[in-house]
Simulated scan of single mutants.
Amino acid sequence: MQNSSHPDEQTYLLDISRRAMACQFQILLNADEQHSAAETAVQALDLVDELEEQLSIFRSESEISRVNRLAAEKPQAVSANVFQLLTLAKQIWQETNGAFDITSTPLSKVWGFHTRQSTLPLPDDITSAKQTLGCQFLQLKNNTVSFDHAQLEINLGGIGKGYALDRCREHFASHQIKNYLLHAGHSSILAHGNRKNSTTKNRGWQIALRHPLIPQRHLANIWLQDHAIGTSGDANQFFYHQGKRYGHVIDPRSGWPVQHTLSATVISHSAAAADALATAFFVIGPENATQYCQQHPDTSFIIATPGDRNRVIELHIFGVEKEDLEVTANNVELIEY
């Protein structure tokens, strides 16, 4: 509980959390938000549970599991919201030249990341896996999904948590809740309105970005208001083979783990887009990400890459105001685009 400098101002937060989608979903509300806010937050978490039942490949009766089983045989009807999400995923695949791909699970499997039993695959195994993926085989028409490849499968793990936060925002808007912070694990965050206390001055909510090399530490703080953040990194899932490090973020186009990015954070109005683009920007790097953002003005990024000197991090920034970002880690060099 945080005490205000003004005795009549309640500045502590209500924290309502639940585990879903293999992470902790957390909703933070100002204590003086309207009386129904806590109940509305519980309803939002119920919605997340419903979405997990609909989207998860680990639920045998989910719409996505049914699509994976049957869409190569005949078109499968899906809910309007699932069709909308698949359409967004394919759009981002196209816009990033395949750097984000919801059909790339075969590569995660061949590298062992899917079951967290990592191993260096044979080149032929990578080639075979690549032949079974690609959103060019994913056909979307009139709320139906069909596959043009018998072995195609889709996995919304790289966009689903952000999409759930977007749906929670819709739920809060329909109940006139204006100030809140939504977390889905450490990678997906959505902020709306303001954290009310004597220091925020209507700047929104301050978010800590995790250090890509030392996960228990912070890299920077950023102010976020009416936007979402998605972060992609491989600090928690990697392995070494003959002294070389391989992380779990794989470039779907080459079939190999990305080597020259430490983390990628994307700021966007849409949490689903931020999630997907964080993965894509991790793959394509800051120069190509800059080209994307120049064509999509509501998108900005913070990308960390290894510096030329040992333990130095280069922090590449596009579209983030200086006053909104506070670097808290040592040995960081800022590169602005």
Rank of each mutant, 00 (worst) to 15 (best):
D148E: 14
H149F: 01
H149M: 00
Q151H: 15
Q151N: 15
E153F: 13
E153Y: 12
N155G: 08
L156D: 05
L156Y: 11
L156P: 10
L156E: 06
G157S: 13
I159N: 10
I159P: 09
G160F: 10
G160I: 10
G160P: 13
G160N: 09
K161Q: 14
G162V: 08
G162C: 08
A164W: 09
A164N: 09
L165W: 04
L165T: 05
L165R: 08
D166K: 07
R167W: 06
R167P: 08
C168L: 13
C168N: 08
R169F: 07
E170V: 08
E170T: 12
H171P: 03
H171M: 01
F172R: 09
A173S: 02
A173N: 04
S174K: 15
H175D: 06
H175P: 08
H175W: 10
I177V: 15
K178I: 02
K178N: 11
N179I: 05
N179D: 06
Y180K: 07
L181P: 03
L181V: 04
L182V: 08
L182E: 01
L182C: 05
A184S: 09
G185T: 04
G185D: 01
H186A: 11
H186M: 02
S187T: 03
S187R: 05
S188R: 08
L190T: 07
A191D: 04
A191Q: 10
H192P: 00
G193K: 15
R195P: 00
R195E: 02
R195H: 07
R195Y: 04
K196G: 03
K196L: 10
N197D: 14
S198C: 15
S198R: 15
T199Q: 10
T200H: 03
K201R: 13
K201P: 03
N202L: 14
N202M: 12
R203P: 08
G204I: 01
W205M: 09
W205N: 11
W205Y: 09
Q206V: 14
Q206R: 15
I207N: 03
I207Q: 04
A208S: 03
L209H: 02
R210G: 05
R210P: 00
P212Y: 07
P212A: 08
P212W: 06
L213R: 14
L213P: 08
I214P: 06
I214F: 10
R217C: 09
R217E: 10
H218E: 10
